[in-house]
Design a protein around this nucleic acid. Sequence first.
DNA 1: AATTTGATGACAGTTTTGTGACACATCAGG
DNA 2: CCTGATGTGTCACAAAACTGTCATCAAATT
Lengths: 242, 242
Amino acid sequence: MSITVLVVEDEPAIQDLISFNLKKSGLTPICASNAEQATVMINNVLPDLVLLDWMLPNMSGLEFARQLRRNTRTQVIPIIMLTARIELEDKVSGLEAGADDYITKPFSPRELTARIKAVLRRRIPEISDEVIEAGGLKIDPATHRILAYADDSCSKYTEIKLGPTEFRLLHFLMAHKERVYTRTQLLDRIWGDHVFIEDRTVDVHIRRLRKVLEKVQKDNLVQTVRGTGYRFSSESAVHSEE
Amino acid sequence: MSITVLVVEDEPAIQDLISFNLKKSGLTPICASNAEQATVMINNVLPDLVLLDWMLPNMSGLEFARQLRRNTRTQVIPIIMLTARIELEDKVSGLEAGADDYITKPFSPRELTARIKAVLRRRIPEISDEVIEAGGLKIDPATHRILAYADDSCSKYTEIKLGPTEFRLLHFLMAHKERVYTRTQLLDRIWGDHVFIEDRTVDVHIRRLRKVLEKVQKDNLVQTVRGTGYRFSSESAVHSEE
DNA sequence: AATTTGATGACAGTTTTGTGACACATCAGG
DNA sequence: CCTGATGTGTCACAAAACTGTCATCAAATT
């Protein structure tokens, strides 16, 4: 998933500088030198964040920010203002217009990307960290812990330690229990849909997961659906022969 | 740990009075006499709480409060409004704007600090100065002391000395025990979201913290969650061997 | 029996953490 | 203005843990 940042800056030199730094830190910059151009670009692609120079030809950055905020489609896009230090003294604040942060020129590349990431981080909602319990297993994303109950009495439990991938795998399966997922679906959902990994790798992780669950006799919860994929099921998985 | 309170008040006399009282009760006041000044200050340092006079030159306190609430970065900062008794009828709109509490002038110093502490306690446990005890460790933010108990009997204890950063780190982790935090989250919450530091620096501070805790056999309380971050946990992390 | 599909152990390359060292502050108090 | 004590952030390298792939074996299906 590439994060696009719309850079609105009239000075080509600074535009290049910013563009270069964004690319270096894995972001995708798209550049505009004025508000009109930026407006057109926003119509094409909705960026994840806008880096906006305070001083622009024709329409001020402030005005452009207001315009973004006024429009429903662009309302939630985070804005970071670029201002010269002298302009900072200006009584009117960019924050007033709804900017999420501002950076004073000159700034270090590190500061730039750090602020961008900070703002994006605040926007992105936390991954669901609800506790999920099923089949005598309890997974808690917030504490990153898995407990296995010996019996239904819930009195005795053992903590289970999993590697990152197995943890995510179990979490996903438990969050969608009783449902079968193909290897490809699991790769898409857990590894991300851009990775290029063998389907069979999923087998190996399922194996690793089961191996750990064996220790607490819970490996039967992760079931193979031949010809399709895998499933987490707490329902009595007694498959009748014949 | 120093708790900073941004005081927005135009009358110098009252500003001084408040400032004096806050200092006396261990808080760190930063003062602004109008909304513009306050905005600039907030961009530099994120305060833990805002004490806001209702009546301000240019922009009203109410408007300023709204501005804070509108911005993601400042959204969660608790606001306490200062209002004259006559203005009390406006209390409704003050709370509407997102104030967490309000105090009517004239107020006693005791009332002031009591309300501040109450609001802080409600909001974020880690910046209150209550004693936290867990896993045989007792941390007292007020006296800036850490005691380690040798066993459950609580009879013998050793005092532990930590540097400022390690102290805050331990305090934060203990205030949110059992919960995992990524390095970035820790940087945001402990160092502040306006610092630009390498993620890995957290490792080093964790290391320093552990080194000190080793001396009293408490280093196992600070745990690594591979692929995620760190966690303070007093629960016996029983790893079933084989 | 042949074929397809899943299980499993091994392994080599990567990624993530742990750790010591170091260069810079900052700050008393000479 | 120095000077040592302390604290901080970075770095480089070591250690540990994890990952993806394969080859091979086992089981189910035809």
